[in-house]
Design a protein around this nucleic acid. Structure first.
Length: 492
RNA sequence: CGCGGGGUAGAGCAGUCCGGUAGCUCAUCAGGCUCAUAACCUGAAGGUCGUUGGUUCAAAUCCUUCCCCCGCAACCA
């Protein structure tokens, strides 16, 4: 099987924050799961670097716009290292391959493109059009005066795609997820689509439109095209086709429309295959409030990772809320998750089982399970089948729920089986119990692996398991002495 | 009357489609165990399921009134 997953490409007008980290980690988890499951995976992320805002920020910083882009893009690349991103490709929209790709896409949709006039309230000081609803007292939010301006612009005949889009949503109910978002998009499209202005001539920091001097592409096409550029468009259209059909675009809810409406329309127009799913994630507030620089509650991914460690944060994001909903990021709830879920449930389970195995001189396997041990064994062996179904729905919260119920079942199992008593008088049962527990630890490690790669690696190390493929779950353990365990999430 | 989602134990949520003893996690209280990171296990308390009226043997679930909250409502990467 092939699988493709993307993050949005991040606009380099500001520094990376926890929201970027969140989207990236979500995509990373999907990618890692599919790789462990044996799929051929393409996972792309990157930066979106064109547009007037970037040009202006560069100017403010007194930098050449190319230098500025390099600097800012690198910050996002560095964020990837901090959060242990396993991307196959980091794409920048200023790269030659992307310019070629976007221009080719432009040519492919040219039957739906025509020259028209774009008009709106323009603020000369801000050098941008201000949407009508953002005006106050006839002024831009910055207080600058605005004037009605018109310029030549290319338009995309989006209006022609209304019916085909509705048909797409109708025939593929899972094209947009979660379902509540789907309704929003459908209702938007039903309300009537207007053609899209897709070029600008007032600034030049963008991809030149073929054979149209003075015109650059507006963000819609430039940014969205990154997904096919990364897959090798236009050279390798075969790969684009087979990957796109299995592609999940992870996006923020604020850019859902571009991905769920404009992007499919462009692809239809270009005769290219549509992605499998657009998944819109929610937003995090910080300590109960919207993150904002003025409140000073913006969560810095680097600092948070330094303070709490990476894996707990990766875990928290997908345990705390259903993927797709909004959530609140508070240190208190993060600490709670670390202490209870990670240290007490997971960490302590691994420790109590493996320390015990150590104590009695190693694992002597016994797979002749009876009713007492068989349910746990079967739950362990079948865990991945359950997770696969949930993962295919991007139900990351559900996946962790399943893994934690196996953890909980294992903790109960230890209590009920009382291996510290079996060691005195029932060696056969003791071995069956510990074999079943090692099986469950291994399944748990695999379940946790996409979320917390380095934690999973520690458990794999303890168990002498390779940890490269879910197939390893089907292999019986052999008699052996494990290396001594140490607490995975030590408390102070 | 723009479209949509939601109001269920102290908190966060599931259950509502296909009516039939109201469930989960955390917090609280009590007990057990001692392998383990004072971790783990068991049990208890706690809810007029937003409001009004109705259908029904039976309503969180179906119909109705009103109140409240939150998304979306196009050029915002």
């Amino acid at each position: 099987m092939k699988f493709c997953v993307t993050t949005p490409i991040y606009y380099i007008n500001g520094d990376p924050h926890i929201g970027h980290a969140y989207a990236s980690i979500a995509a990373d988890i999907l990618a890692r799961f599919k790789r462990l499951d044996g799929d051929e995976v393409h996972f792309s992320t990157g930066t979106d670097e064109h547009g007037i805002k970037v040009a202006r920020s560069a100017e403010t910083a007194g930098m050449d716009v190319y230098k500025f882009s390099d600097l800012m893009s690198q910050k996002f690349r560095d964020l990837g290292k901090v959060i242990n991103l396993s991307e196959d490709d980091f794409i920048r929209t200023t790269e030659e391959r992307h310019i070629v790709s976007s221009q080719q896409l432009w040519r492919r949709i040219s039957d739906d493109v025509y020259m028209g006039t774009y008009s709106g309230w323009y603020s000369a000081r801000d050098e941008e059009y201000i949407p009508e609803e953002d005006l106050s007292d006839g002024k831009a939010p910055s207080g600058a005066p605005v004037e009605w301006m018109e310029e030549e612009s290319y338009f995309f005949r989006l209006s022609a795609y209304q019916d085909r889009l509705l048909e797409l949503y109708e025939k593929n109910p899972d094209f947009i997820a979660p379902p509540s978002r789907r309704n929003e998009v459908i209702s938007f499209v039903k309300s009537g689509l207007k053609d899209l202005s897709i070029s600008r001539s007032k600034f030049d920091w963008g991809i030149p439109i073929p054979d149209a001097p003075g015109h650059v592409m507006y963000v819609w096409i430039d940014a969205l095209a990154n997904y096919i550029t990364s897959l090798g468009f236009p050279e390798n259209e075969e790969r684009v086709a087979e990957m796109m059909a299995n592609c999940v675009h992870v996006v923020g809810k604020e850019i859902l429309r571009f991905h769920a409406v404009y992007w499919p329309a462009f692809l239809m127009s270009a005769g290219l295959p549509l992605p499998k799913r657009i998944f819109a994630h929610g937003w995090w507030t910080s300590e109960g409030q919207k993150m904002s620089k003025s409140i000073g509650n913006v969560v810095d991914p680097q600092k948070t990772v330094e303070k709490y460690g990476l894996d707990p944060i990766r875990y928290f994001f997908f345990r705390e809320i259903r993927f797709g909903e909004d959530g609140d990021f508070s240190e208190k709830s993060l600490q709670r998750r670390i202490s209870y879920d990670l240290a007490n449930d997971l960490g302590n389970l691994v420790q109590r089982v493996l320390a015990f195995v150590q104590k009695i001189g190693g694992l002597r396997v016994n797979y002749d399970f009876i009713e007492d041990e068989r349910p746990l064994f079967e739950d362990s062996r079948s865990l991945m089948r359950k997770l696969r179904v949930l993962m295919d729905k991007q139900d990351l919260n559900g996946v962790l729920g399943e893994v934690w119920s196996l953890i909980s079942a294992s903790n109960k199992f230890v209590d009920h089986m009382k291996p510290w008593e079996l060691v005195k008088d029932d060696e056969d049962k003791l071995n069956r119990v510990l074999t079943a527990l090692c099986e469950s630890l291994r399944a748990i490690a695999f379940g946790v692996a996409p979320f917390m790669p380095s934690t999973a690696d520690k458990i794999f190390d303890f168990l002498n398991v390779d940890g490269k493929s879910f197939r390893e779950i089907e292999v019986n353990f052999t008699d052996q002495t494990f290396r001594p365990p140490f607490p995975l999430f030590p408390k102070e």
